[in-house]
Amino acid sequence: MRRKMIGLTLLLLVGYVLAGLVMEMPPVGSPDAPAYTRTIPRYLSRSVEDTGAMNIVASIILDYRAYDTLGEATVLFTAALAILAVTGGDEE
């Protein structure tokens, strides 16, 4: 019961903050959103010339932000390592 009360209180609190934030966002699909007008035009117009890849998402994750993806591959590796350590790996 106490847990439910804590849950509901937190729910109302977080829900209030989220509702306030969502109403401030630019409408879904608006081409004038700041997220679409600042850096994206450069990616859209230059990526084929810069990387030779037709898939803009591929050119972002593997060229412009390849360092990020290296970290991501490391996360996968570390997760596999940690899980093998926790579950006892292959010994037996």
């Binding site: 994206i40 859209l44 803009i56 998402v57 972002i60 994750i61 932000r65 996360v75 996968l76 997760a79």
Partner: peptide, 19 residues
């Protein structure tokens, strides 16, 4: 074209979520 940057970021986030 739609915005490719969130898609690229979420690709990373999905892998982290799986891990």
């Amino acid at each position: 074209y739609v915005n490719p940057l969130p898609q690229a970021l979420i690709l990373t986030a999905i892998v982290v979520a799986v891990s």
